[in-house]
Structure formats: C-alpha cells, structure tokens
Computed example of a mutant assay.
Amino acid sequence: MALSSEQFAGYMRQMAGGALITIELFAASFALALLFGTLIGIVTQTRNPVVRALWKTYASIFTGVPSLLVIFLVYYGGSAMMTALFGRAKPFEVTPFGAGLVSLTIVYAAYVADLVHGAVQNLPRGQFEAAAALAIRPRHAWIYVILPQLARLALPGLINVWLVMLKDTPLVSLAGLNDIVAHSKLAAGATKEPFVFFVIASLFFIAFSWVSLAATRRLEMRLASGMAEVKS
C-alpha cells in the first residue's frame, strides 16, 4: 500500500513513544543491575562457604538460562509466585515493563557481579593494607579507595554488558511491552512496508550504541587521567 506522509508521521510518533519506553526500561534495569551486581561482587569476597555456594548457584543459573526464558518465567509465573509468597487473596499483577525490569536486573546483575568480583581480585593487596595502616575505616576505604579503582578496572567489561543488555531489552516486547520493536512490527504489518520500519528501529539502536560508546570513551579518559603513566 502507498504510505502517505501523514501516515508515516503517525507511525513515527508511535515508534518515538516506543523508543522512550525502551530507553526507560533499559536505563532502569542497568542501574539496578549495576547496584545489585556491585553489592554481590563485594559480598562474594568472603570465604564463607554458604555465601560462595549461593553465588555460584545464582551465577550458573542466570548466566546459563537465556534472557527470554527468564522474562517469560517472570511475566507468566511472577503473579503466582508473589501471591504464594505474600498470601494475598487478590493476585499480584505483573506488567510487561515490570517483568522486563525484574528479569533484566536479575540476569545482568550476575554478569556485573562477576566483573566486580574479578576486579577486586585483580586489585593489589597493598591497597587494602595501606588503607588499614592509615586507620581508614573499612566503609570509607571501599568508598574512597577501592571503588574508584574498581570502576576503572571493570569499565571495559561494563561497556560490553551495557551493549548486550541494550540488545536484549527488545525481547520484552514478546511479553507485550509496547516498545520501539513492537511498534515497528505493528507499523510494518499495517503498511506492508517491513523494511522501512525495521530499518528505522535498527538505526535507533545503532545511534544509541554510538552515543553510548562516545560517552564511555570520555569516561575512560577521565578515569585514567589520575593514573601515573608507566614508562618502560
């Protein structure tokens, strides 16, 4: 069918609204995954066998199960699980956005935790010893001494997690989220012009990735600015 400029503008407005939902879900999920992943990565430094066993179980499950299956499990089974846990007479309602937020957070917190755990292990032990020798409280030592160095060490891995998570976010559209992919599919079906709208959706992700990479390069330079240059 011939697509008028007015129709095209209408579909583009819908896709713009979907793009905003995609960005909101992605940003919220990444922020939570970064927060919980960092906490888990620090807690797993303990030698407590129970904590280490729980961490290995959690990591093996959520780094091995596809994100799409986790989304489906949360979306279709989350209401029953929450109702059983809290014993409410009225079932909990799980929205596509909520299911995506919980699923992406759970999955990618495991990857972030693994990165943080490895970054802590790669820090020279002298950093901890120096903080202790200066009588810096452990909490302050982590905040002002350890975490800034962890950010520099873990940043390349976090960039990869950021980009992979961005590409997994549209999977939530299969659970009913009206994101940019869902709107591009509807527009393609209504106009019989799938190439046009799927290319536009692809360009959105390309542009978002390009802006992200440009921002992270600046962040890398800023984090490295305080590091002394090692001369051979």
Rank of each mutant, 00 (worst) to 15 (best):
residue 3 L to M: 10
residue 5 S to C: 00
residue 6 E to P: 02
residue 6 E to W: 02
residue 7 Q to R: 09
residue 8 F to Y: 14
residue 10 G to Q: 09
residue 10 G to A: 05
residue 12 M to W: 12
residue 13 R to Y: 03
residue 18 G to H: 04
residue 18 G to I: 05
residue 18 G to Y: 00
residue 19 A to F: 02
residue 20 L to H: 01
residue 24 E to Y: 03
residue 25 L to S: 14
residue 26 F to Q: 03
residue 27 A to M: 07
residue 27 A to E: 01
residue 30 F to E: 11
residue 33 A to Q: 12
residue 33 A to C: 06
residue 35 L to S: 13
residue 38 T to M: 06
residue 38 T to Y: 09
residue 38 T to V: 11
residue 40 I to C: 10
residue 42 I to N: 01
residue 44 T to E: 11
residue 45 Q to K: 10
residue 46 T to N: 09
residue 48 N to E: 02
residue 49 P to K: 07
residue 50 V to H: 06
residue 51 V to R: 06
residue 52 R to H: 00
residue 52 R to G: 06
residue 54 L to K: 10
residue 54 L to Y: 12
residue 54 L to M: 14
residue 56 K to V: 12
residue 58 Y to G: 13
residue 58 Y to P: 14
residue 58 Y to W: 14
residue 59 A to H: 08
residue 59 A to P: 01
residue 60 S to K: 04
residue 61 I to W: 04
residue 62 F to C: 04
residue 65 V to T: 14
residue 65 V to K: 01
residue 71 I to S: 09
residue 72 F to H: 06
residue 72 F to T: 05
residue 72 F to P: 10
residue 74 V to E: 02
residue 81 M to A: 14
residue 81 M to C: 00
residue 82 M to A: 15
residue 84 A to Y: 04
residue 85 L to I: 10
residue 85 L to A: 13
residue 86 F to M: 07
residue 90 K to H: 09
residue 90 K to E: 14
residue 90 K to V: 13
residue 95 T to R: 07
residue 96 P to F: 04
residue 99 A to C: 10
residue 102 V to C: 09
residue 102 V to S: 04
residue 103 S to K: 15
residue 104 L to E: 05
residue 105 T to S: 13
residue 106 I to C: 08
residue 107 V to G: 12
residue 113 A to V: 13
residue 114 D to L: 10
residue 114 D to M: 08
residue 115 L to W: 05
residue 118 G to S: 15
residue 122 N to K: 06
residue 123 L to E: 05
residue 126 G to K: 09
residue 126 G to I: 00
residue 131 A to I: 03
residue 131 A to N: 04
residue 131 A to L: 00
residue 132 A to P: 00
residue 132 A to N: 03
residue 134 L to D: 00
residue 136 I to W: 00
residue 138 P to T: 00
residue 139 R to H: 01
residue 142 W to N: 01
residue 142 W to L: 09
residue 145 V to T: 08
residue 150 L to C: 03
residue 152 R to I: 05
residue 154 A to F: 04
residue 154 A to N: 06
residue 155 L to I: 01
residue 155 L to P: 06
residue 156 P to F: 08
residue 156 P to A: 06
residue 156 P to E: 04
residue 158 L to G: 09
residue 158 L to M: 15
residue 159 I to E: 02
residue 160 N to T: 15
residue 161 V to M: 05
residue 163 L to H: 06
residue 163 L to C: 04
residue 164 V to Q: 10
residue 165 M to V: 03
residue 165 M to W: 09
residue 166 L to H: 03
residue 167 K to S: 08
residue 172 V to F: 10
residue 172 V to R: 10
residue 175 A to L: 05
residue 178 N to V: 11
residue 181 V to D: 07
residue 183 H to Y: 14
residue 188 A to C: 07
residue 189 G to M: 08
residue 193 E to T: 11
residue 194 P to H: 12
residue 196 V to S: 03
residue 197 F to P: 05
residue 198 F to E: 02
residue 199 V to N: 15
residue 200 I to S: 11
residue 203 L to I: 14
residue 204 F to Y: 09
residue 207 A to C: 11
residue 214 A to E: 03
residue 215 A to G: 03
residue 215 A to T: 03
residue 215 A to I: 02
residue 216 T to P: 00
residue 217 R to K: 12
residue 219 L to A: 09
residue 220 E to R: 14
residue 220 E to C: 07
residue 221 M to L: 13
residue 221 M to T: 14
residue 221 M to A: 15
residue 224 A to F: 08
residue 226 G to N: 07
residue 228 A to N: 10
residue 229 E to L: 11
residue 231 K to I: 08
residue 232 S to K: 12
residue 232 S to Q: 08
